[in-house]
């Protein structure tokens, strides 16, 4: 009897220990073997092939592939329709799907407002911000314009016939153009000509078909030096230095996921893009293309989005595009 009691006690405690052990291993392994992509990741680009966002997305794909940071491939898919509306509506449809991510432009803030879309950045999960792209005021190298003052004089002298090329309508380039007009009192003197992509704008400037542009550095650089001349922003003086503190505008390049995805997935992506943002390849690219490398995630990123959205709302309202 005594023995059997002893045995029973031993058996019970063994079972209990085993149960605790299994539970412990489970929970630990759950923490260790956190979320990982199990299918190829759709890497949605809210712009066309060959543009600035597309180039960045394909560069990221290269860095991730070469370093074998993801067990599943990143598959870039361009959804350029409706100035990004198509891409954002697509992400809304994919709610809860952790195998879709989006690389953004600023139309991420402006398009939902202008088109009154049933989706906004709030419906998505902010993952990571990698860079802030700058805008540069460019003119054709054949012109005599060397400074912003020259440019203002030239615009005024053309009496409303000055043309400024940019990508799309009511998108970043036109916002910057309008900001320039307000800052230098050039309202009504600049005709904005919309083109399909930044590369086309730069080419038309180099060929002398338009008078000036506000291309991102990576778009204008192929023609520099020789064909085009930057007159304000990066290597040349910034508008802030020229006494126009309000003329500060960046293109954020960030990664977003659909809303309602698992916490583990968010953590996995954050980790992935932290590695990417701090990689030497990314540092080299941003340096070469005069982007500002700007790694940001978590709470600060969420508040950055709120700030940017308010800024765009104010900008659009100021231009009479929103009521």
């Amino acid at each position: 009897m005594k023995l059997s009691k002893w045995t029973r006690w031993l058996t019970r405690s063994l079972i209990a220990a085993l149960a605790i052990g299994v539970l412990a291993v489970w929970s630990v392994s759950d923490a260790l073997a956190a979320w990982k992509p199990t299918r190829p990741i759709e890497f949605i680009i809210m712009a066309g092939k060959g543009g600035g966002a597309d180039r960045i997305a394909r560069l990221m794909q290269k860095i991730v592939t070469e370093n074998k940071w993801s067990p599943q491939p990143l598959v870039p898919i361009n959804k350029k329709g409706g100035s990004g509306a198509e891409a954002m509506l697509y992400l809304k449809q994919k709610k809860g799907n952790p195998h879709v991510i989006l690389v953004t432009l600023n139309s991420f803030f402006t398009t939902p407002r202008l088109r009154k879309l049933p989706v906004s950045y709030k419906d998505l999960t902010p993952v990571y911000r990698l860079a802030m792209d700058t805008f540069v005021l460019w003119v054709n190298a054949k012109s005599n314009i060397k400074t912003v003052d020259d440019w203002v004089k030239a615009v005024k002298a053309k009496k409303g016939k000055w043309t400024m090329g940019g990508t799309g309508k009511m998108q970043e380039d036109q916002l910057v153009t309008n900001m320039l007009q307000q800052a230098y009192g050039l309202e009504g003197l600049i005709t904005y000509v919309p083109f399909r992509g930044g590369g086309t704008v730069a080419k038309n400037l180099a060929g002398g078909h338009i008078d000036s542009s506000v291309n991102n550095p990576s778009e204008g650089l192929p023609h520099f030096p020789g064909k085009v001349r930057p007159i304000a922003v990066s290597k040349v003086p910034t508008f802030k230095e020229l006494g126009k503190p309000k003329l500060v505008y960046f293109m954020q390049r960030s990664i977003n996921a659909p809303g309602g995805i698992p916490k583990g997935a968010i953590a996995w992506y954050r980790d992935l893009f932290t590695k990417l943002c701090n990689s030497s390849e990314w540092k080299q690219y941003t340096n070469k293309k005069a982007l500002n490398r700007a790694c940001l995630t978590g709470g600060p990123l969420a508040s950055f989005f709120v700030e940017e959205d308010n800024k765009h709302k104010a900008l659009l309202t100021g231009m009479g595009l929103l009521k």
Binding site: K79, K80, G81, G82, A85, E86, G168, M170, P194
Partner: peptide, 19 residues
């Protein structure tokens, strides 16, 4: 539409017509 920036002939809100 590249010039006005607004979607045309998308029949309400058919996403597939945006591109």
């Amino acid at each position: 539409d590249i010039v006005s920036g607004s979607p045309r002939l998308i029949f309400g809100e058919i996403t597939g017509f945006y591109h």
